[in-house]
């Protein structure tokens, strides 16, 4: 993952003045350390601090006693969380919602990018692009607010439309069958446009002579798409899929928090929202932290594996 340095050839001058070079280099790195120090301190406090705070998952944490005064209980909290009836349901919900998002969040932008690539009228192409990128930049509070309004069975435009067509309006946000699909659809709606960027960039890098060769061989458009275009963007598809598998435990905390209500906990409650309610609303710090720690550990394994696989198979590296 760490970028290996391009070989730095030792020049004649360097070898000759080796001593001075080493010395001056040592002095020269001081500004580097100084530049990093503020970020280092803040990262220690706000990123590594909470990691040490995770010890309360192994305690019966009582805020007034603090971490040092609270009783140690070993894996008791994990055992409790594991036997807690909601836990399995919440894990199942999380996996269901996030796999739906991964699958449709992958297909929709690829199809859109392929279609956009076919457009020849520049004004339509860039107009469509401008519009479909927009939802990505709006927060879930704004989009959630709009969605709640649209989907309200009595006042919302969708409920009204269904009623006008003679259907019984569905309360999408209050129905356990529909709710996960509202989450998946609205997520895909928000992100599909933005996700096309990376595929469009990959499409422009396909060698045009490949298409000419395919045409000479008598391949029609569909065959060209299948045999030239898709293989051309396969590395990027593999990369995006791998990286998204790393975050399969993130089913979209902010989105769910804005859209859900107690009547859809059964189908829409996810790990993050459970941790939030248990920890910050019911003040069961230790159990909530234990569930959070479980999620962090699994996520760490998944993300590291994803990055490793992305590096191994697609030569992608973050540094």
């Amino acid at each position: 993952m760490i970028r290996s340095e391009a070989s730095v050839p030792a020049t004649v001058a360097q070898t000759r003045r080796g001593f001075w070079h080493r010395r001056s280099r040592r002095i020269n790195t001081l500004p580097f350390h100084l530049m990093i120090v503020p970020a280092l301190i803040l990262t220690l406090i706000f990123k590594y601090g909470p990691m040490f705070g995770l010890v309360i998952a192994f305690q019966d944490f009582v805020p007034i006693r603090g971490i040092t005064g609270s009783e140690w209980v070993g894996f008791e909290n994990f055992r409790f969380a594991w036997n807690f009836p909601d836990t399995m349901e919440v894990i199942a919900n999380t996996l269901y919602i996030s796999s739906g998002k991964i699958v449709f969040g992958l297909i929709a932008p690829i199809v859109t990018a392929l279609l956009l690539n076919e457009l020849r009228l520049k004004i339509v192409k860039s107009g469509v692009q401008t519009i479909i990128y927009l939802p990505h930049f709006l927060s879930w509070v704004i989009l959630g607010g709009i969605l709640i309004d649209l989907l309200s069975p009595s006042q919302g435009v969708i409920g009204r439309g269904m009623a006008a067509l003679g259907f019984e309006p569905i309360y999408f946000l209050g129905d356990n069958t529909w709710f996960p699909w509202v989450l998946i659809t609205s997520h895909v709606w928000k992100e599909f446009g933005f996700s096309t960027i990376i595929y469009l960039a990959a499409l422009t890098s396909i060698d045009p002579t490949l298409y000419e060769a395919a045409m000479v061989d008598g391949a029609n458009r569909w065959r060209q798409t299948w045999n030239v275009t898709l293989p051309g963007i396969r590395p990027i598809i593999v990369l995006v899929t791998t990286l998204s598998l790393g975050s399969i435990l993130d089913a979209g905390f902010e989105q769910v928090l804005v859209l859900y209500s107690p009547q859809v906990y059964e189908s829409g409650d996810i790990i993050d929202t459970l941790v939030y309610r248990m920890g910050l609303i019911d003040a069961q710090y230790s159990i909530a932290t234990a569930i959070g720690l479980f999620k962090s550990v699994v996520a760490f394994i998944l993300i590291s594996t994803a990055y490793w696989a992305a590096y191994r198979f697609a030569q992608y590296r973050i540094f």
């Binding site: 990123k47 601090g49 040490f52 920890g279 710090y285 962090s296």
Partner: peptide
């Protein structure tokens, strides 16, 4: 290298919500 790992680790692992709130 040391610094890179120091910062990248925070992308891979986090203490989570409750410990951050307590900090």
């Amino acid at each position: 290298t040391w610094y890179v790992w120091f910062f990248v680790l925070t992308m891979l692992f986090s203490g989570g919500l409750i410990p951050l709130y307590m900090v």
